[in-house]
Design a protein around this nucleic acid. Structure first.
Lengths: 321, 321
DNA sequence: CTGAAAGCGCTAACAA
DNA sequence: TTGTTAGCGCTTTCAG
């Protein structure tokens, strides 16, 4: 019976008559297999654990949604959780997923979780990191070429005639943030212009963050352009700029790393370094499902991908002539 | 051993010595119980299935996040899924959750899923609906008094001197949408003013939706105020209004049902009928966890709550004198 | 007070 | 080609 249900009738040389009979009975009784028992027996849950930084952030929400859709089509279910970038919470979530015997992991790693991730790797559980990676670990990952993105953005601002371009980022040594900073500094260096970097400490109290950015901009009257390293920093920044009554782009040009619905609708529309969400999702799930194939040789080779960004130029970075 | 681990040592009169020995051994080996086997045996998974319309919508994202946090603290895990308001997908998701033996359901019901929900109810699986409910079914639910919200909003617009207030909603007979419409019509009736209602068909092609609203506004030059029945309708509407170059609030006052980050930051800031997300989340999870208590009498009584909204007045609805 | 054993529903190996 | 059965890891009952 089990064979028939799992579509192994042919291969197990079970007669069509029996297969039919089983199927008919199953239909009649409305039999639903107990997934729990099945999983206990086979060790496979067909569930993938997705650990992102913040599911309410549109970037992660979109990627998660695309991943879920693709996985669903291929018979896998996704369970999400947000880490809020808190290592303790991340560890707890990973441990919870392990207890629930997920077949694979997709993780946006916060800092300091190398130990937990290498534990998963040691158990041979297929895993893909995305958005950032852990440089000390050999893992699959899909990231974006942030340096190229901020380099192009800085270049664009310089072409618009800006000479004092500032960079607002978060207080973090994660790979993706370092990269974004690197592209910016490099572009300025090539033009022999000074860099002006603010590392904001992001807390729950959004007013404090806004005030922090507010003070940074206020104390830098000569500044004529700002690049924000994440979309939520840009949103805080726009609030600060409004408070200071600086006009965009006349007084201050603005570019955001990572796009957002709001940026298209804001007045003026905000130029953004867009990440290729579809490609990210597709690559992540492809790598994972490939490793989930029983046929695949384990550790046959890591897949480490770096995807390009795209600069979407809107009004906020176009200086009047 | 099982007794000790589950904290039933005392009650089963197991000697402290043995309990200690077991605990020490467990610690030493790093034993982790297999949740799958446990669930198979007990029939309890400690997982709650959360079926929302669209997890990337900030309203649902926030409520989901609050529910998850509360549930986590009390030992329950949440698995989410989005229905996109598609009955077929909703049925599939409910059936998937049933297969996974979730202990309880939290559902934002789309239309036409009465049969599935009553099947869950018949199985005595604790369930709470929110945001809207199914009038034909006796279930627990937590909804918002949308009629009161739109009534107050319309009233406010009339006080501002508006005389031709239009209402843009979606093509749906769901309870919450009907309520929102009702509050609007009632307020206008009391002032003997004509109602002007547009029911938009929401599709994947956002341009079409925007164009639809665009045409509605264009063909109604005497209109001096609009209430949008959802936050995403407002976002489409703002785009349409920008295309038409109508000034807010001078030419057209705007109010959105359901608040959004964007509305605070938009120029001008958009007046919104805010829903009490914290209360919704708290009430939903409290009702569900109460029913999940084995002590609770089943069907002892339904909990049906209607929470108030709050009108947050911003610039978009203040007419110049 | 403690250890042994049945059985949750399923799959896969093994007899028949 | 088919029916039978062991056992996945746990809880809980029932002898010891």
């Amino acid at each position: 019976m089990s064979l028939v249900l799992n579509g192994k009738a042919k291969q197990s040389r079970i007669s069509d008559a029996v297969a039919q009979r089983v199927l008919a009975y199953v239909e009649e009784v409305g039999y639903k297999p107990n997934q729990l028992a099945k999983s206990l027996r086979t060790g496979k849950t067909h569930v993938i654990g997705l650990v992102v930084e913040d599911i309410s952030n549109s970037f992660f929400a979109t990627v998660a949604w695309l991943i879920e859709k693709q996985a669903f089509e291929r018979g896998y279910r996704i369970i999400y959780c947000s880490t809020d970038n808190d290592p303790a919470k991340t560890k707890e979530l990973i441990s919870m997923f392990r207890e629930r015997h997920v077949d694979g992991f997709i993780i946006v790693p916060s800092e300091g979780i190398e130990k937990e991730v290498s534990a998963i790797l040691r158990e041979q559980t297929p895993t893909v990191l995305f958005d950032r990676h852990l440089p000390d670990l050999s893992t699959n990952y899909v990231v974006v070429d942030g340096a190229q993105g901020t380099y192009a953005a800085t270049q664009h601002l310089l072409e618009q005639g800006c000479r004092r371009v500032a960079f607002v980022t978060i207080d973090s040594t994660q790979t993706q943030m370092e990269e974004r900073l690197r592209g910016y500094t490099q572009a300025l260096q090539e033009h022999n212009l000074p860099a002006q970097v603010k590392r904001v400490v992001v807390t729950k109290e959004t007013e404090k963050v806004v005030a922090d950015i507010h003070d940074f901009i206020r104390d830098m009257p000569e500044c004529d352009a700002i690049i924000f390293a994440t979309n939520y920093l840009t949103i805080y920044g726009l609030e600060a700029i409004a408070q200071l009554q600086r006009r965009i782009p006349a007084d201050l040009a603005v570019i955001s790393y990572d796009d957002h619905d709001l940026f298209r609708l804001y007045t003026p529309a905000i130029t953004a370094i867009a990440q290729p969400v579809e490609s990210i999702a597709k690559n992540v799930i492809d790598i994972l499902l490939e490793e989930l194939q029983p046929s695949a040789e384990p550790a046959i080779g890591l897949s480490q991908q770096v995807l390009p960004t795209q600069l979407i130029i809107r009004q906020s970075s176009i200086r009047p002539a």
